[in-house]
Amino acid sequence: MNWLADFFGDAGHWSGPDGIPVRLLEHLEFSAAAFLVAALIAVPLGMLIGHTGRGALLVVVAANAARALPTLGLLVLVVLLAGVGTVLPVLIPLIVLAVPPILVNTYEGVRGVDADLRDAAYGMGLRGRQVLFRTLTPVALPLILLGLRLAAIQVVSTATVAAFVGLGGLGRFIIDGLATKTYADVIGGAVLVAALALAVQFAFVLLDRVAVSPGVRQVR
């Protein structure tokens, strides 16, 4: 607990380019960028695959590969190959690791919609695209949001590890603290990242409450 007091009590940690506010903003910036790109790729793709049923194998392979791929190895390799120093190479592994959870859950969500419901939508005269957006998407939303939540947490967590290959953000406190054996910084950084991860988790719980139609929630 002394370490926590050392870390958070140090005025130097609250200002300047390596202060907590700046590092937090950096972390949010990288994470949001990677998360948005991943969502823009994976949500439409998952909806398309779930709706048409084509390419389901791709989803299964992506899901298994993502779980087995070691984050740190991927980060180190991509950044070495693409060149150290710029931010873009670090974002690639962040995106690559965020795509599968969104893809899988979006696919499962759309695929898992009750066939009767789908038929009823067609029976009422809706066309393919209308069925997808007006019927399948709202019903699949809880699972799509779950995928987005898992991806967001994955991104925040990977961005922490990415401090090792030179990315800014809250991971810097942990990585630099480990390098200089300043355990107050390691623990302080860990607590900050944990708080951020929990905040993300909480934000998605709220989003779920707001966005999911009450009718859909009742069925679950």
Binding site: W3, I153, V156, S157, T158, T160, V161, G171, I174, L178, Y183, V186, I187, G189, A190, V191, V193, A194, A197, L198, V200, Q201
Partner: peptide, 14 residues
């Protein structure tokens, strides 16, 4: 589960 592994490692390090 939502905590990054590096965070838990760091906390248990102490």
């Amino acid at each position: 589960y939502s905590l990054p592994s590096l965070v838990l490692f760091s906390i248990f390090l102490s």
